[in-house]
């Protein structure tokens, strides 16, 4: 059992007329998604909303206890929950890519996606593109998503060389949902603790606000205040892009131990 308090804001920013970001939060499913769409006209908005809705609808079927059919090609290196989330992103990719092939005005549209799912044993963070997922544990902030940008990938190989890359590479993605027939999301699965905080955002926030500033803001504020404080900060600094932020706090976490483990823990205390 996990209890999560969450808040999300999606703001158009100061320069754009439309909002190409989309988000989804559900504390009963423990599922949180940010998608940052791209493509001319309204295509970016279409792409990001398809992504968010597909993930939501696919994951919804697991909410009840009814067993439903699952997609094949499960990856043994990740848990069942992670496999489901990855499957939902594959479905979203098919949806966006399919539409872009059929409709000329949607040609080349795509979207990033960053999704977090809590299961009893771990938190699962899956991403494609450059929308960051930060994990804050005991006053330390850590990026647990993998930025799929030319700049980040070059920096991983040779930090010095990356510094000399033209600034445009900072926004150039190497992967995005809906651009090709297949997609490879990055998956991170890790245990979590009561008090941990996660921040999911679009690059409209991360371009303007440094991780240390995010850490400071969410550390001292309630989730809803932290969320609006972060959006305000990005807007004060120009608000060049759409800004979407989800802040979530793990309020409580109860391990569902079996009676045996419970008994052993009691014995352990006596011993």
């Amino acid at each position: 059992m996990v209890v999560i308090e969450s808040k999300g804001i999606s703001d158009v920013g100061k320069k754009r007329t439309g909002n190409e970001d989309a988000m989804f939060l559900d504390d009963s499913m423990n599922l949180y998604v940010v998608a940052d769409g791209m493509g001319g006209h309204q295509a970016g908005e279409v792409a990001s909303s398809i992504v968010v809705e597909t993930i939501r609808d696919y994951m919804k079927q697991f909410k009840g206890k009814g067993v439903t059919e699952e997609l094949e090609d499960t990856d043994e290196s990740i848990s069942r929950g992670a496999n489901r989330l990855v499957s939902s992103i594959h479905l979203a990719n098919n949806g966006v890519y399919g539409l872009s092939q059929k409709n000329e005005s949607y040609e080349g549209m795509g979207s990033t996606v960053s999704a977090v799912l809590f299961t009893d044993e771990s938190l699962i963070a899956v991403n494609v593109g450059d929308s960051p997922i930060y994990l804050i544990h005991k006053d330390e902030i850590e990026l647990i998503s993998v930025p799929h940008t030319v700049l980040a990938e070059q920096a991983a190989i040779d930090p010095d060389r990356a510094k000399n890359l033209a600034p445009r590479f900072a926004h150039m993605l190497t992967r995005a949902v809906g651009i090709g027939e297949t997609i490879k999301p990055d998956v991170c699965e890790t245990p979590y603790f009561k008090g941990d905080i996660l921040v999911l955002s679009s690059d409209g926030l991360s371009d303007k606000v440094a991780p240390e500033e995010i850490l400071k803001t969410v550390g001292k504020e309630q989730t809803n205040k932290a969320c609006s404080a972060l959006v305000d900060l990005a807007n004060e600094r120009g608000g060049d892009d759409n800004i979407t932020v989800i802040v979530l706090k793990v309020k409580d976490k109860k391990n569902q131990k079996g009676w045996f483990a419970w008994l052993m823990s009691k014995i352990g205390k006596i011993v």
Partner: peptide, 30 residues
């Protein structure tokens, strides 16, 4: 004129490699 450069864009592997080669001749493709 490249104001849109600020906007996120995706590139396929081939144009990625060729742009990198132009921008930084020694860049390796990841």
């Amino acid at each position: 004129p490249q104001e849109n450069m600020d906007q996120t864009m995706v590139m396929d592997t081939n144009s990625y490699k060729s742009m990198l080669a132009k921008s930084s001749p020694n860049a390796a493709s990841p």
